[in-house]
């Protein structure tokens, strides 16, 4: 056994034990057939293929085959939301407070955030016109810029968007990486259209002086409202699809609970903390950690419940769906 085979076998641990026993040699053999003569390491794409294949097989063994399509649907909704938020914040960045207020700003923009929002808007445009593989790179680029904002702003002493704005954007973007490999043109256009509509609406409201300046907006109300809207859209979609016997919407809704929770963090932190004063960093951090644990836990619980229901014995007299035998 050479190094390459050993490494493929290590990656194969992503699959359930029983499946590895029956299919492992065949899968690794095919990888070795495809490998270049001097290849010593599996390609990153091979590793991703095996890890995803293993996850699919584990979900299949648990009877949860519709989870991945549900996550892909949730990814599209997450990208629409992330793009709309980028449209809102990107437009707000163009309206810094009057100079006489003495509020620090970055040139003609409110903060360094303009760079990240521009990257998110670019990602929305790329999703509309390019294959999913390229779109994932554009999303990753926007994610990296967003994550880099706090340390870069600290190093430069420049203003940046608040963490409670950046955090849900990162979570929405991470989920967005699971976007489907193939989608209709209308679906691919949705993030760009939502960004455009959000930008136009924000420009209109700024013109009316209805939202004040960028960070004058009440985040404790605005972000949870966006989360609430996402929850309502997800629930309506889940109900509509369930009426047609399609369970993807239910899984999409459960998956979206995590980003919805992150959007609600300012509201939750505000309601848990004292009735007066601004939200402290500690309140935000504790709430964010609680959401980060509760959201995925809800998904895992749903998977476990579904798996138990799927593996329960068939009612007497009903044929087994696999072998046709009657109980």
């Amino acid at each position: 056994m050479n190094d390459l085979e050993r490494r493929y076998l290590r990656l194969l641990r992503a699959y359930p034990t029983e499946y590895r026993r029956t299919r492992g040699a065949e899968i690794v053999g095919t990888y070795l057939d495809l490998a270049a003569p001097a290849q010593r390491w599996p390609a990153p794409a091979d590793a991703a293929d095996l890890l995803l294949g293993g996850l699919r097989q584990r979900l299949r063994a648990a009877g949860v085959t519709d989870l991945i399509p549900g996550v892909r649907l949730a990814a599209l909704l997450a990208l629409v939301t992330a793009s709309a938020l980028a449209g809102v914040w990107g437009t707000a960045e163009l309206h810094p407070p009057p100079v006489e207020w003495g509020v620090p700003h970055v040139g003609p923009f409110v903060s360094l955030g303009v760079v990240a929002w521009a990257a998110w808007l670019l990602a929305a445009a790329v999703i509309a016109v390019a294959p999913s593989r390229v779109a994932r790179w554009a999303i990753t680029f926007a994610l990296l810029l967003t994550v880099a904002l706090p340390p870069v702003a600290a190093a430069l002493g420049a203003p940046r968007p608040p963490l409670m704005v950046l955090l849900p954007q990162v979570v929405l973007g991470l989920l967005g990486l699971a976007l489907p490999d193939r989608s209709s043109r209308a679906i691919r256009l949705a993030p760009a259209l939502s960004a455009l509509l959000a930008a136009v609406a924000t420009e209109f409201l700024v013109g009316l002086d209805a939202v004040g300046t960028y960070y004058g907006a009440t985040l404790e109300i605005f972000l949870p409202t966006v989360g609430g809207l996402l929850l309502v859209v997800g629930a309506l979609l889940a109900t509509g699809l369930a009426l047609g016997g399609d369970t993807r919407g239910g899984w999409a809704l459960v998956t979206l609970l995590t980003p919805i929770g992150f959007l609600a963090v300012p509201g939750l932190a505000d309601s848990f903390g004292p009735a007066y004063g601004a939200i402290t960093f500690a309140e935000l951090a504790v709430t964010a950690v609680a959401v980060a644990l509760a959201g995925p836990a809800a998904l895992l619980l749903a998977v476990a419940l579904r798996s138990r229901r799927t593996s329960s014995p068939q009612p007497s007299g009903q044929p087994c769906p696999t072998c046709g035998a009657r109980a």
Binding site: I27, D49, G53, G54, T322
Partner: peptide
């Protein structure tokens, strides 16, 4: 097709 994807598809087709 990569092997992980191919064998997943073959499993479904066999089922």
């Amino acid at each position: 097709l990569r092997p992980g994807t191919l064998y997943g598809a073959l499993d479904r087709l066999v089922d």
